[in-house]
Simulated scan of single mutants.
Amino acid sequence: MEINPTGYVPALMFDDGEVLTENVAILAWIADRAPELAPQGHLGRFRLLEMLSFLATEIHKRFPTYLSLPEEAREPTGQQIVHWFGFVAGRLERGYLFGETFTVADAYLFQLAWGATHLGFALPEPLGEYIARIEQRPAVQAALHREGLA
């Protein structure tokens, strides 16, 4: 609550004290500063926002509901989560969500899929291989280690 008045994560505090919140906004900000982490083309920025919004609203938002339900009532929400992971799995035919290049949307999908597998979800292929490949990236290894998840 000290940084983000909503009490949610993520929140990015700048040196001047300004705060940026919400995954979509933070990841778009990162992509603007590191264009190699954004899809290219005349619709690249908008395709990125489209995918980030999809991940946030169709997958990410279902986890708090799923986790708040008693185990015997989780199946319908769990099926929705797996269904939408199936949709994004179909986008990985060339390695990443936007083809052969890793983007901030892949970082978000990795976080969601990695967490889902640790909750016991059986995700459709090629998400298993995708998670394993991204998990081997040095920056991901460093982040998992820093968070005590490695």
Rank of each mutant, 00 (worst) to 15 (best):
S53R: 03
F102W: 14
Q79I: 07
A132Q: 14
I131A: 05
I30E: 11
R91N: 07
M1C: 13
Y66C: 00
L69I: 00
I81S: 04
E93F: 05
A56I: 04
G99Y: 01
D15I: 00
T21R: 12
P70S: 11
L52S: 05
H60T: 05
F54S: 02
I59G: 05
E36I: 09
T57E: 12
G120W: 01
G95I: 05
T21V: 11
K61Y: 09
F85R: 05
W84F: 15
S68I: 02
D32H: 11
L123Y: 02
A89R: 04
L119N: 03
L127F: 10
E125S: 13
R62V: 01
V19P: 00
A116D: 02
N23K: 07
G148D: 08
T103G: 00
I131Y: 06
A122K: 11
Y96K: 10
L12D: 08
A113Q: 07
I81L: 11
R47N: 14
A34S: 11
A73R: 13
L109G: 03
P138H: 05
L119E: 02
L127G: 09
T57P: 02
Q80F: 12
P76A: 06
L92G: 04
W84R: 14
G78Q: 07
R91Y: 07
I59N: 03
P39V: 06
N4T: 11
P76K: 10
R74N: 03
E135T: 13
H83K: 15
V24P: 06
M13K: 14
F14K: 03
H42T: 13
E75V: 15
E75W: 09
M51C: 08
G115K: 12
Q111M: 11
Y130Q: 11
I30W: 02
E93C: 08
I30A: 14
R146W: 14
I134M: 12
L37P: 01
F85T: 05
L27D: 04
R91M: 06
P35T: 14
L119W: 04
G120F: 02
E93P: 03
Y108I: 01
R146F: 14
R47A: 11
P35M: 07
E129S: 15
T117E: 15
G120N: 00
P138Y: 07
H145P: 03
P126Y: 06
F121W: 02
